[in-house]
Design a protein around this nucleic acid. Structure first.
Lengths: 196, 196
DNA sequence: CCGGAACCGGACTAGAGCAATCCGCTTCGA
DNA sequence: TCGAAGCGGATTGCTCTAGTCCGGTTCCGG
């Protein structure tokens, strides 16, 4: 059973194998993908990613078997990050829902992929599962706020989904990137759902 | 100069000329177009309209020179109708802005073309002009409400555009057609923009 | 510094989706 | 009855995109 494969001492760089230039390209592609998907969401094309990375499209496919795979990697990064933040807030216990709410707006601003993910994003099972977790955590936070009398009774996750994803989508659509403008909209929404 | 063309007594049916079956088809196409565009907005295809009218696609093109022309006719119908309503409200003078606001929500529900028109709809100059008029009338109504202290100061047409078009777009996207659900969202938005 | 393996870019393939046209056949109506 | 008006759907021509192929280039161990 003694393996014939290389020593496999992938200690520090978990994926650093093969030629150095190839590794450099892999990084470039990943970084470009993050930017391009943030800008164009699910509509981004592989060619756009390749161009941004200053690389041929074949190089993208050499590192990722399909566009879906690439999308999934970027999507999961966002979802896991947001999930971590939500869990931390839940664990702390004393984070007001308003902050969670505003934080979501801030994370959606300028990130069309994030928006697309929460809107429909059926990329693969892993992403779907992560999204479900994130939604559950957010819902729990909202329900607690309703129970505490911070948010008007009768307001559900479905309602907030329409309000937040709808307005964030529209802001993206018109190319609004000013944080103050986003904040202004968030404040109006908040005024509509908060108690007195 | 005595014209050789037919009597041209197009009194009652302004467009009734040619064979009866052709006229019938023209009507079917127009009706189908209204339904299909309402359902799919600008994304609707000519083939969908033809199928809905139970007609070959060539019949559509026999009556309308291009898809744009067809779209324009349907779009103008909606815009002129809404403009008329807005003018009537303005002339009456005592229509509370809240009613105008709710009426817009009602008119956007189940009509994706209307939504697309207000969101971006650059179909042709006529449509663009009609939309501009409609926006001006709505803005005037909003500004009056702000002046009257019914709507919080600092709320602009741009704000309402994001709130209304965003949420209506999202409701359409998820296929929500229940009037009560739309009304619920409208009420939340209203609570966010109205004074005390 | 050499040679072959690994890697590269971009031309290419395959296929979907669409507006608009063409044309042989059918139906209307004088 | 018969010719013109009208018909449908096959077809064309275009755009756009995911994914593959291949001749040339670059890296790096010996």
């Amino acid at each position: 059973m003694t393996p014939v494969v290389p020593p496999a001492d992938d200690a520090d760089p978990p994926r650093a194998r093969g030629r150095a230039d190839a590794e450099r390209n892999r990084t470039r592609v990943a970084e470009a993908a993050a930017l391009v998907f943030a800008e164009h969401g699910l509509d981004a094309t592989v060619a756009q990613v390749a161009d941004r990375a200053r690389v041929g499209n074949a190089t993208v496919y050499r590192n990722y078997p399909s566009k879906t795979e690439l999308l999934s990697e970027v999507a999961l990064r966002w979802l896991v990050d947001w999930r971590t933040a939500l869990r931390a807030a839940a664990d702390a216990g004393d984070v007001p829902f308003r902050e969670v709410f505003l934080e979501l707006y801030a994370r959606l601003r300028g990130d069309r992929l994030a928006l697309d993910l929460l809107r429909a994003g059926a990329i693969d099972d892993e992403v779907t599962a992560a999204r479900a977790e994130v939604e559950a955590l957010f819902t729990a936070s909202l329900d607690a706020a309703v129970a505490d009398g911070l948010v008007r009774p009768g307001i559900t996750y479905a309602d907030l989904s329409v309000l937040i994803l709808g307005t964030a989508g529209r802001l993206s659509e018109i190319g609004e990137t000013d944080p103050a403008a986003w904040r202004h909209v968030a404040d109006m929404i908040w005024a509509g759902i908060a108690t007195g």
